[in-house]
């Protein structure tokens, strides 16, 4: 298993995760009234893989 194939395989996963994270963070910064403290959401989004951004989008944005 050489290094390049490994990177190529993992690239889409990393890209999607990072993309989701950045996208959610930008939305959090712009959001005037998130459901809960902003800094807590920021920590959740950055440190909890996948689930953090999902939770923010579902619960934190108050869009239900």
């Amino acid at each position: 298993m050489d290094q390049t194939t490994l990177v190529l395989l993992l690239l889409p996963i990393i890209a999607i995760q990072l993309g989701l994270m950045i996208f959610t963070l930008v939305d959090l910064v712009k959001n005037p009234n998130p459901n809960g403290p902003k800094w807590l959401w920021a920590i959740l989004i950055v440190f909890v893989n996948i689930l953090g951004p999902i939770l923010y989008l579902v619960i934190g944005r108050r869009n239900y």
Binding site: M1, L9, I13, G19, L20, D27, L57
Partner: peptide, 28 residues
């Protein structure tokens, strides 16, 4: 506007990719 059209498919795609890749790297 609440981005559901984007992020829900993206989450599904992510889980669709992770499963084969983890299986592939299981020995490592």
């Amino acid at each position: 506007r609440n981005y559901k059209v984007f992020w829900i498919p993206i989450v599904f795609i992510l889980f669709g990719i992770i499963e084969p890749v983890t299986n592939y790297f299981m020995p490592q």
